[in-house]
Computed example of a mutant assay.
Amino acid sequence: MASFRLQIITPDRIFYDDEAERLIVRTTDGEMGVLARHENFVGALPSGPVRIMKDGKYRVAALSSGVLKVSAEKTTIIAEAVEWADEIDIEWANRSAEEAREKIAKKESEKEMLYAELKLKRALNRINVHSGNIR
């Protein structure tokens, strides 16, 4: 299978910079796959799983919102945060989800509710990716 250059960048580091045979991400318009010679594309990425195929095997990571750009030269994801499934601190993710649920239950302000909902989505994404429960 033909490959393409994939680069995933966060504010802290270059998470991935290598060849890939396939990339599957969740965009705001739905799930999308990228193969070599894909047409140019730019799209928003909410929190969700990122699946990268290299040497015929998938590796999965949890992404916390970002932007995807596909061009002839390379495919780039600029993300708030990304971590491999096996690197996720599941205890921290579960605590984060519980804290977010508590804030949502308090219904303090609209701003706090929106922040807590985003925090909950990120935490649930990390939990699902860690457990292999990717929808």
Rank of each mutant, 00 (worst) to 15 (best):
L63W: 01
L63H: 02
S64G: 08
S64Q: 14
G66P: 00
V67C: 08
L68Q: 00
L68D: 04
K69I: 10
K69H: 10
V70K: 01
S71C: 08
A72I: 09
A72R: 14
A72D: 15
E73K: 10
E73I: 09
E73F: 04
E73R: 10
K74H: 11
T75C: 08
T75M: 01
T76N: 04
T76K: 00
I77V: 13
I78C: 08
A79W: 00
A79L: 02
E80V: 06
E80T: 14
E80L: 06
E80M: 04
A81E: 13
A81Q: 09
A81I: 00
V82F: 01
W84C: 07
W84E: 01
W84A: 05
A85M: 06
A85S: 15
A85G: 07
E87M: 09
E87H: 11
E87P: 01
E87W: 03
I88T: 06
I88A: 01
I90R: 06
I90L: 15
E91D: 15
E91M: 08
W92I: 13
A93C: 08
A93R: 02
N94M: 14
N94P: 00
R95P: 03
R95Q: 14
R95C: 02
S96Y: 04
S96W: 01
A97Y: 04
A97R: 14
A97M: 08
A97G: 02
E98Y: 07
E98G: 05
E98T: 10
E99S: 10
R101S: 05
R101M: 09
E102L: 11
K103G: 02
K103W: 02
I104E: 03
I104H: 03
A105R: 13
K106Y: 05
K106F: 07
K106Q: 15
K107T: 01
K107P: 05
K107V: 06
K107N: 13
E108W: 07
E108L: 11
E108C: 01
E110D: 11
E110S: 10
K111A: 12
K111S: 11
E112T: 10
E112I: 12
E112A: 13
M113R: 11
M113T: 11
M113Q: 10
L114S: 12
Y115S: 12
Y115R: 13
Y115L: 14
Y115W: 11
A116T: 05
A116Q: 00
E117H: 05
L118Q: 10
K119Y: 02
K119G: 08
K119M: 12
